[in-house]
């Protein structure tokens, strides 16, 4: 089989029609994951052993199951589960499935950010008699979140690359469009190459951007941290 440029140019606009959906789904999944990541983080911090255990177990379960299986379950099986019986369209199923799956990873990112804040920051805000909420919103999160931004950016790119999974349940993103085009013309080569090119063209600059962001953050926080630690080491 040889490459046909006319096929390529013919398929391009057709495949591109799916880009809007792919991007929209990426953003929707990501927002879901970023918000729900917080929910996990705070649920896990509830100082009741049974709750902590339950939450950890559920997160572990979600993380250890393939996203594709979760997607199929939500789309095909959830409507048949007694009591729940929810049937979601393909797009919402994908948001719930991929969003939930990645929220457990993003929760880890938040956790590492929060745990990197020295105990002294909590103690100083207790000494000033801050409420629990004020400690979080004024002291801890403003310090914990900025250093995690590059990692959160990485997850955005990962999410973008995972979204084609949703074509398996019929979300009409670029991969789905390429498949449709391929099956109509009995030729997949050009259409799928286009999909690969679109992903490359979008992911690569995004990855560079994230790396830049990371360098910037490292510079900013190294300065702070180093001074603080040197002082601590003296005593």
């Amino acid at each position: 089989m040889n490459w046909k440029w006319d096929m390529f140019f013919d398929a391009f606009p057709f495949v591109l029609q799916g880009l809007g959906i792919t991007v929209a789904l990426t953003i929707a999944c990501y927002i879901f994951a970023v918000v729900f990541g917080f929910v996990w983080t705070f649920l896990k911090r509830i100082p009741i052993k049974s709750v902590h255990w339950l939450v950890s177990w559920v997160m572990e379960f979600i993380r250890s199951t393939p996203p594709l299986v979760q997607l199929f379950f939500i789309y095909y099986a959830l409507p048949m589960v007694p009591v729940i019986e929810i049937s979601l369209n393909a797009f919402l199923s994908a948001v719930l499935g991929l969003g939930l799956h990645y929220s457990t990873y993003i929760a880890e990112v938040y956790r590492s950010g929060i745990e990197s804040i020295p105990k002294g920051q909590w103690e100083a805000s207790t000494a000033l008699n801050f409420t629990r909420r004020q400690k979080w919103t004024k002291i801890i999160l403003p310090q914990a979140i900025p250093p995690t931004i590059p990692m959160l950016g990485n997850y955005f790119i990962i999410m973008f690359k995972e979204v084609p999974l949703a074509s398996t349940i019929g979300v009409t993103g670029i991969l789905h469009m390429a498949n449709t085009y391929g099956s109509h013309h009995f030729r997949y080569l050009e259409a799928l190459t286009i999909v690969a090119i679109i992903f490359l063209v979008l992911s690569y600059p995004a990855a560079i951007l994230v790396r830049k962001l990371e360098e910037k953050m490292n510079r900013r926080f190294d300065k702070n941290e180093l001074l603080e630690e040197n002082k601590g080491a003296v005593s």
Partner: peptide, 30 residues
């Protein structure tokens, strides 16, 4: 606890706030 204040061995200043903000935040927030 409102009656009590504390100064720590390792200062525990809030690194994301200026010196002035470090001082103001208690009276304003609390």
């Amino acid at each position: 606890r409102g009656e009590i204040g504390m100064v720590f061995q390792h200062f525990n200043l809030f690194p994301h706030m200026t010196i002035l903000q470090n001082c103001m935040t208690g009276p304003v927030q609390v």
